[in-house]
Structure formats: structure tokens, C-alpha cells
Amino acid sequence: DHDVVPEDKFQETLHLKEKEGCPQAFHALLSWLLTQDSTAILDFWRVLFKDYNLERYGRLQPILDSFPKDVDLSQPRKGRKPPAVPKALVPPPRLPTKRKASEEARAAAPAALTPRGTASPGSQLKAKPPKKPESSAEQQRLPLGNGIQTMSASVQRAVAMSSGDVPGARGAVEGILIQQVFESGGSKKCIQVGGEFYTPSKFEDSGSGKNKARSSSGPKPLVRAKGAQGAAPGGGEARLGQQGSVPAPLALPSDPQLHQKNEDECAVCRDGGELICCDGCPRAFHLACLSPPLREIPSGTWRCSSCLQATVQEVQPRAEEPRPQEPPVETPLPPGLRSAGEEVRGPPGEPLAGMDTTLVYKHLPAPPSAAPLPGLDSSALHPLLCVGPEGQQNLAPGARCGVCGDGTDVLRCTHCAAAFHWRCHFPAGTSRPGTGLRCRSCSGDVTPAPVEGVLAPSPARLAPGPAKDDTASHEPALHRDDLESLLSEHTFDGILQWAIQSMARPAAPFPS
């Protein structure tokens, strides 16, 4: 592969990997390779389809078979030569091979799209000592099968071997295949498990690692696999990028399955594409389908809103127990993405979901129960707010008499603000006073009005108090039968009158 990737590009890729991570280095090298001529790309395919690569990765054979028959990708048995050289000459001794072996032994695996480039050397060096003999053996194999790289107009793939297949390693990572398949204008990513390549439709969760975000852009890794992070704060999961590491605690105790298979379609829109997988259930989501939507993949363990709600429900009964003089119970939860139609709101002032922060849900004790107040519409209280300059209440639009249902020339009671006709409430011909108009209920007259088809109010509507207090003497005590009587009149003013009279009014101040 030294004929494909020059030394300066190799060093530039290593520097970019240390600065921005393996995914960015892979993407940059792939983009550079696509700008080369067809001879360089053909050399790339020839390096990929060597015999030892085909033996190690069985899924490469179907890719090789898909090439046109007129494309010669065979390799000479006596060494490598550029395709432009007409004579089959043995190339001179390859010093770059020693360079590659020494550099890969030092860096474990470079971040390139060629056999030198995919593992994360920093994480491997940190986690190597417990498994040094086995990992050293794996390093000797890295130059042979560490990076199976493929690129063409139909298929483009980048393979990364790992030393996680050490025997006896619980939940060992089998390997990473960062794979971009450009077929019919689409893009897919796969993962390699035990020599087999699994596409998103049959993606397997190998051991402790999972394909957290099938994305090839942005600074985030394709698999949430930063070796420096180790395990999740809650004892979460091992990262795919942690090559040759000792077994780590796999999943939280509440995880239903340690080796679950995540779905390959969004649980909201039932469509495929780039998904984020939940650590607590097999569901996966688009970032845009979450509520609120996320802009980037959160670091650490992530769970959907259903799993978060289940966790909150487990903690909430203990938080609601009476604990005198104790601060509110704080339950730190990872930043969760909410699927459509589901929402768990945190306290005000918290950062938005999706940031690399930890939301704190506070379970406050329930407030003391209070008697429910009568629910009145805002339009129902409008007549009470229509007060004239002299303190006389004006008529609201649409006000109707509670007896006849007519809204023409209605009066407004100064005591309960109900609309009424003087002739309907006082049919006996009582003279109307000039000021202080009161309806039949507030004036103490319980004589029913002779209106055909309208039920008369119940005599129990009024329960006047002592006459010594004029204001308190007109406080009506309405009961269920009074409400039914008012409802039978089918008037809004009657219902409003009952609601206003049912509310307690402050006692009249004593004259000074």
C-alpha cells in the first residue's frame, strides 16, 4: 500500500487522527484517494484483494465477484509491481515495509483507509498491559489484515481490525468495519463480527460495544468508541475503539438485554438511515425525530424517553415518601432524547437536551391539597369587569335574561352582576328603583315568574340570613337542586349567576 499512500500523506493522516480522531482521518484520506487517478484506485483494489485478505475476510469475495470481468485485479505471486511496468521484474528490497512494521508496532494501528489505518492507538496503548502477550500477537497480524480498504464507483468500504477477539475476553470487541457502500446513491455502514460483515439490516451488537450512531460526518466517531472515555459513568459499556482492553462492566443492572439487537429503522417514522440506538431497549431513532430533536450524538450512555420514564417511576415512589426537613431528592440522569409524543421536562434553567451534561430531575413533595375552585371561562368573567365610571356595571355583549332568554333592554344586578328583565323577575308590577337594581334572587323575592315553557326556580334557592346585616342577608345558599333548576333554563347567565354566588365573597367592612 506504500505505492498507493505516500509517506507524507501517511504522516498527515496520523497527525489528523491524533488531533480530530479516526473518523475524520478516514474521511480525509478517502476524499484524497478519490481525487487520484484511476491507476492509484486500481492499485488500491489490488492491494485489498490479496489472497491473505480474501482468506481472512470471507465477505470480500462477493465484492470481488461483483467487479466487471474485464477488470484485472489479480496479484502476481513473485511480488508487487506497478501496473504500468511491462516487465515482470522483482521490485527492489522494500524498506517501507520495515517502516510500516515499526510504526504500526509503535502506534498499534494508524488512522488511514489502508491496512495502516483504523484502530485507535492511544486507547490501545492505555489498555494494553493486562493483555500484552495476546495483543502483541495481534499486532503482528495487523499489517496483514488490519485495514481492508475498498473503493469503487459501486462499493466503497473501509475495514478496521481490532485485537478484541482475544480468547477469554468477556464481551470482547470482535472488530470495527467502517463501511461506506455507495449503492444507488445511498450510504450504509456496517460492522465486522468474527470475520463476517453485518449491514444495518442485520447488524449484531457484538459483546459490549454497539453501533451508536451510523454517521460518517462530524467530529463524533462512527461508533461511540473513545478509548479514553473507558466505561460509562454508571458502569455503562465498553467502547469499540478500545482495542485489546480488559473486560469492562457491560450494562447497567436495569438493562433488559446485554447482547440485544437494535432495530435498523426509526421507532417514530419507521424509516432507515442514520440512527441513534438506545442503551436500554432495542429501539433506534433519527436525531430529527426525537422531541426535542438533537443536533449531535450525546457522549456516554444514552437512553430513550421510555427508558428514562421507567427509571424515574422506579425512583419516584421512594422520593415521595414523607421525609421531614430533607432537601428534594435529586436523581442524576443521562441526557435523554425524547421520541415524538413523549416529553420529560427538567427543571427550568437546565441546558437543552443533547448537550454533554447531566440533567437533574428533582422530585419535590406534593403540595397540600386544596379545595378545587369553580372553573370559569374568561368570557364568563367579562360582565364582572365591565364597570362604568360611576361604579355601575355596563352590559356585556350577548347578555340575556335568565328567565325569558331575551337580551333586549336587559338590566344588570348590582349584587350578582346577572342580566335580567324587571318585568320577568317582578311581574307583579313592583316599581323599579332608580339605583341599586337587584334581581329577584338578590332582592329576596322568590315568586316564580309566569313564563310559559320555563321551569320556575326551586323555592330553596334563597336562604336569607339575619336582617340586621343587609349585605350578609342576601347571601344565597345554592344546592344541587338549585343548579339543576338553573340548568333547565338553558341560559348561560343562569349558570354564571350560580357560579358567582357559589364563590365566597369577603364580608362587608363594618362602618367606622
Rank of each mutant, 00 (worst) to 15 (best):
L376V: 08
D356A: 10
A288G: 13
E390R: 04
Q257G: 10
A472M: 06
D409K: 03
D264H: 08
R400C: 09
R440T: 11
T435H: 10
C442A: 02
V454E: 00
L308Y: 09
A370M: 14
A460N: 10
P347I: 12
H474P: 10
G429K: 00
S443R: 07
A463I: 10
G494A: 04
S441P: 12
L290E: 15
L462S: 10
L364V: 06
P476Y: 11
E452W: 11
R270N: 10
L250D: 10
R323Q: 09
E390D: 13
P476I: 13
E321F: 14
C289M: 11
P334S: 12
E350S: 10
C439E: 03
L483F: 15
D482C: 04
G391T: 15
D279L: 08
Q309R: 08
T491Q: 02
P511S: 08
E452L: 11
T435N: 11
G354P: 03
P322E: 09
L486H: 01
P328H: 12
P372R: 10
G272P: 09
A499N: 02
L287V: 09
V329A: 12
K362N: 02
C386P: 13
D481H: 05
Y361T: 02
E265R: 05
H363W: 13
E263T: 09
E321S: 08
A507Q: 06
P282C: 10
L411Q: 06
L487R: 02
S485R: 03
L359W: 13
Q257Y: 15
H421W: 03
E320Y: 14
G465M: 13
G444E: 03
A472H: 00
G453V: 15
H259W: 10
T447R: 08
T357D: 08
H490N: 13
P365S: 09
Y361L: 11
P448Q: 04
E320I: 12
L359K: 12
W498Q: 03
G434N: 06
P253M: 14
P383T: 09
H425F: 03
L275I: 08
R423G: 13
W422M: 07
C269R: 04
P372V: 13
A353S: 07
A366Y: 01
P433R: 08
G434E: 12
R283K: 10
D482E: 12
P459T: 14
L376P: 13
E475A: 08
D470H: 08
A428E: 09
P247T: 10
G453S: 12
F420L: 02
H474D: 05
G272T: 14
A353R: 11
C386W: 13
R412E: 04
V344K: 09
Q260L: 11
V329T: 09
P368G: 12
E343I: 14
E265H: 00
I500Q: 02
T358H: 12
E296P: 09
G434A: 09
A467Q: 14
C401N: 03
G407A: 04
D377H: 12
F426N: 13
R270D: 05
S339K: 15
Q316F: 08
P334C: 15
P247I: 10
L496C: 05
S306N: 07
R423P: 11
G273K: 07
V246H: 11
D255C: 13
V410T: 09
G349K: 04
V451D: 02
N394H: 08
A499R: 03
V451F: 07
R303L: 06
V312I: 09
E343T: 10
Q325P: 11
E263A: 06
W422V: 12
L384R: 06
V387R: 10
I500Y: 03
R270H: 12
A504P: 05
A267G: 07
D279H: 10
L294C: 09
P448G: 07
P347N: 15
P292W: 09
L487E: 02
R338V: 13
R432S: 10
L381W: 09
R270Q: 13
V344G: 12
P506T: 09
T311V: 08
A428Q: 09
E321P: 08
L258W: 06
D481Q: 01
M503S: 03
G402P: 12
V403Y: 13
G429H: 09
C266E: 03
A366W: 13
P459R: 07
A396S: 11
A319R: 09
S502K: 01
A460Y: 12
D409W: 01
L376D: 13
L395Q: 10
G429S: 10
P511Y: 15
H259I: 05
M503Y: 01
P476V: 12
E265F: 06
P348N: 11
C416E: 02
E296D: 15
G375D: 13
E343F: 04
F285P: 13
L478M: 06
V387L: 06
H425V: 06
L287K: 09
D482R: 01
F420I: 03
C278M: 15
G336F: 15
I495G: 02
S378V: 11
A428T: 04
E320G: 09
S306R: 11
S254Q: 13
A477L: 10
L258Y: 15
E296A: 11
V410N: 08
G336S: 09
